[in-house]
């Protein structure tokens, strides 16, 4: 997943508060939806908790590709749990990650916006492609890469708008540096899209009921 790999203190306090407020508003809408539109049941809560734990555990695995890659498979969370439950899952994963030093506490608001973009876009594309006669691997892979592309764009926009405390360069060299990071992120996104494609097609092959049920729950 794209993640703003900046520590606490990189953004000024007003931007930390701004991104937090935006993230809280989105989470508030998710909670409202879960309360008024789709009443959340015990099974969904337990399943969301398990997906959170799985997402966090998977992040701890070092994949020995190109020197080592870690991923939390945010788009996969979106495809399996839907954007609403997915947003809550990424909130908890971000809090747990901040607690162990992966991303700053102040960055959780900004990172949530990036991850919610990934979860929502990946889910939306996966669902949209379901109407076309495409195999599961391609649907999940395309959903993931587009989700991560949008996540990357959100990340760049957040950093460009907020600025980094202590960086006094003009916008052009900053944009050049950030583009380099986005390019590296997209390289990892290609690996992640293949892995997500494999994961979803494997689940489809072994336990198709999980995908059917979760896609249905997310779309309700």
């Amino acid at each position: 997943m794209a993640h703003i790999h900046l520590p606490d203190g990189a953004f000024s306090i007003q931007w930390i508060i701004t991104w937090w407020i935006l993230a809280v508003i989105i989470l508030g809408l998710c909670l409202y939806w879960l309360k008024k539109v789709k009443k959340i049941d015990n099974k969904t809560i337990t399943l969301a908790a398990m997906l959170t734990a799985a997402s966090f555990a998977i992040f701890q695995v070092n994949i020995p590709l190109f020197g080592g890659v870690h991923m939390t498979l945010t788009p996969l969370t979106g495809i399996l749990a839907g954007p609403v439950i997915g947003s809550i899952i990424v909130l908890i994963v971000n809090i747990l990650s901040a607690a162990i030093g992966h991303g700053g506490w102040g960055m959780i608001g900004a990172n949530l916006l990036v991850n919610i973009t990934e979860v929502t876009v990946a889910y939306g594309i996966y669902k949209a492609l379901s109407k076309i006669n495409l195999d599961t691997f391609s649907k999940a892979g395309i959903g993931t890469i587009i989700g991560l592309l949008f996540g990357n764009i959100a990340m760049l926009l957040i950093i460009l708008i907020s600025g980094i405390q202590g960086v006094n360069q003009d916008i052009q060299p900053l944009l050049y540096g950030l583009s380099l990071i986005a390019a590296v992120n997209m390289g990892v996104a290609i690996i992640e899209s293949f892995i997500t494609g494999y994961v979803v097609s494997y689940i489809k092959r072994v336990r198709p009921d999980i995908l059917a049920e979760e896609s249905h729950a997310g779309a309700k």
Binding site: M50, V61, I63, I191, I195, G197, V199, Y202, I203
Partner: peptide, 18 residues
């Protein structure tokens, strides 16, 4: 091959978690 194997581990994690 490496990616596929790790994907199967992740998929199994998801299935077992479910």
């Amino acid at each position: 091959r490496q990616g596929k194997m790790f994907a199967e581990v992740f998929a199994l994690t998801m299935i077992r978690s479910y």
